[in-house]
Design a protein around this nucleic acid. Structure first.
Lengths: 392, 392
DNA sequence: GATAGTTTGTTAGTCGAATTAACTAACTTC
DNA sequence: GAAGTTAGTTAATTCGACTAACAAACTATC
């Protein structure tokens, strides 16, 4: 058991700050009611939060119909610091710079091949560039979190399929060059953090990502579950068909070989005997109700459903957010999957389309920056949903 | 955030008590060193624990080679209360009565068909019987926990295959009749609690039980993960062979239809064309190196391994305790499974034979009684390993 | 428009848990 | 027997959170 020194680590301070971050404006009295903390306690904690630049007063609110003193509304001092997020894939890099509430300052995607030789420069040039424009703020850049499509453990990249980032110690290099807190995390895990940060209702959340690979990020009791070595939720390599097709991972019949976007497009190409067909062609063919495509998609849904059930049967979450280009284009598949679920003991599990799509991991990285900055491990605070959803 | 009233709920009290429960004897100075709490703080907390009958002093220890005052050794006041555990299957009921450290007072297995009509009497008669022999103790019976081979949620039995316990509200009935705290929990979950209570080293533990059904109990960050509706770890009904044999659960190709003890014996019977063959015959045939039996067991190991990998790929635990009659009789299969694992990204995950075997759930129930009694949700305290392993 | 009632937020005093620092107690070694 | 070491207690202090009382600022109403 370690003792709390830093005031912001103090349990109740973080509870109060969470309530303030969670909504656009709130009064001391309301915080007291929501948390069960005494009014006097809330006043004292808020006094320190204001003193330390975390919170600002934005003026009086309206009194209720039954009268009474008007509340003094509080809000998080969102401009006290900024967060920088990167998402790195083998074929592209994107970044997002936001204030503390998630409001966008800058967002860019660049399609280019990423390697261990260009990643450091790609990142530092963005950071240096931004640093030069940054006017004085109490906290400055609170941290940089990098989303990696691969296995990450203890801030080290252990395995990156399709590229070679595992050959350098990215965090050490960047910490030296930037002199800022650097964090790296798996893409699916960060996506789950993002979904959880916007979901006030649920405690157990799975984010199921199917892009080039398939992975699940898992939030249990409001906290990210990373597993003992950062390998939790690697469902892409659980076996769907014993004795099925070979997978680069060494096993046979892995889910990823049947249900990743890549695999489905390949199957579509073989079905039509045309290797030039793209993802968009597949979607078009489906919407034209081409019967062989329909059948193929139906088979995909069955396989996908088994992979999904596999995760649900292990974790028993309340809700699963699905983040997949294919299911985004064919949303009725979600209903179909929900129908499959309704016939099992997991009928109460709710499937939802991810609201954040391809920006999920970037916002998850923002959440991680905030978590590290505030020294908390839960997601009981949130970014400003409105601000986030209006981006692009 | 709720305030702590009851002294024993107080964070640091429970930390100190855990250290005392965790070993046969310990001094105040050592507690101070282990926990980081100040000597004075430890003295005060221990004073209250002694006052409240949780702890006793057992006399002076030896001083170290470099001299100094001799320590006053402390130990948990194990006879201050007793725990009662039941394990209920469709075909038998067993119970275990222990002191607070897990030392056996009574243990009995009775083979009989259990139904909703006889379960209440079976339990109350044991409790009443024991109550009459119980001499005055500070806490008396601290609780009764019942292990159920079925789905349990919020202290209610929701589904029991092979029998009908889900038709009565067992906890309410027993609470009325016994006037004691009654808890019920799934068998696999309790087994996991038991394994974790004896495992000081690991934080993420899976207990994989394969008996009539297949289930996994999961300990994450030292706490039992039950899922949002008590259905976590229901791996018996994840799909092994898509389009495989029908399962009573409604799905096709469930793991349970291939790897439960029941399923394997049935397969052996068909293999040999003799329906009277038993589990023991299967084990004998294997040890006689009957080639068709060997092949069958090899196939079983492959299937079992896929089921296991499925769980590991989701949770990424540090260690998996396997509780299966078949693997207990053929322990070399564990090495084989470990070999399969070594070829995956989960090469660091350790497989172990359960030390507790068929008594795992009973000891897990004891742990649960202690957890509820002490108002804690972790297993950072333990039963007395020596005392437990000498039972029978 | 004076008064009563309501709600927000602050102040003063108190409590309790944990800390530090200085002590006593009880040993070993030389 | 003196010096060094370890165990445990005591007293004073700090700090977070609580209660209770109050001031501030509103609404409703006769």
């Amino acid at each position: 058991m370690f003792r709390m020194k830093n005031s912001i680590r103090e349990q109740n301070s973080i509870i109060v700050l969470s309530e303030i971050i969670n909504r656009p404006e709130i009064s001391r009295a309301m915080i007291s009611e929501l948390t069960g903390l005494n009014k006097a306690t809330v006043s004292e904690i808020v006094r320190r939060l204001i003193e330390d630049d975390y919170v600002i007063e934005i003026g009086p609110g309206k009194s209720t119909s039954s009268g009474g003193r008007r509340p003094i509304l509080l809000t998080v001092n969102k401009k006290a610091g900024v967060s920088i997020s990167f998402d790195v894939r083998y074929d592209r890099i994107s970044y997002l710079i936001t204030y503390l509430d998630g409001e966008k300052i800058d967002y860019t995607i660049e399609e280019k091949e990423m390697t261990k030789d260009n990643i450091v420069d790609s990142i530092t040039s963005v950071v240096e560039n931004f640093k030069s424009t940054l006017t004085d703020s109490p906290f400055g850049i609170i941290g940089i979190t990098i989303s990696i499509h691969g296995i990450v453990n203890e801030n080290k990249i252990e395995f990156t399929p399709y590229f070679d980032l595992d050959e350098i110690d990215l965090v050490s290099i960047l910490e030296q060059k930037c002199d800022l807190p650097i964090h790296i995390e798996n893409e699916a895990n960060l996506s789950a953090l993002a979904e959880a940060a916007f979901d006030y209702e649920h405690e157990h959340i799975v984010s199921f990502s199917a892009h080039t690979g398939i992975g699940a990020g898992v939030i249990l009791h409001g906290q990210l579950h990373r597993g003992s070595s950062g390998r939790s939720g690697e469902v892409g390599h659980t076996v769907l068909y014993p004795n099925g097709v070979n997978c680069p991972c060494g096993n046979q019949g892995c889910l990823e070989q049947y249900c990743s976007t890549k695999a489905v497009v390949r199957k579509f190409q073989r079905l039509k005997g045309d290797e030039s067909l793209t993802f968009d062609d597949l979607v078009a063919s489906y919407h034209e109700k081409d019967s062989s495509t329909l059948n193929m998609i139906l088979q995909f849904a069955k396989d996908f459903g088994i992979g999904l059930m596999n995760v649900i049967g292990n974790y028993d979450p309340e809700v699963v957010y699905i983040n997949s280009e294919l299911l985004e284009e064919i949303p009725e598949l979600i209903s179909l999957l929900q129908h499959y679920l309704s016939m099992t003991i997991y009928k109460n599990v709710v499937l939802k389309q991810s609201l954040l799509g391809k920006k999920a991991s970037l916002y998850g990285a923002t959440v991680m920056n905030l978590q590290k900055f505030l020294h908390v491990s839960n997601v009981e605070f949130s970014l400003n949903m409105e601000k986030v959803l209006e981006v692009e």
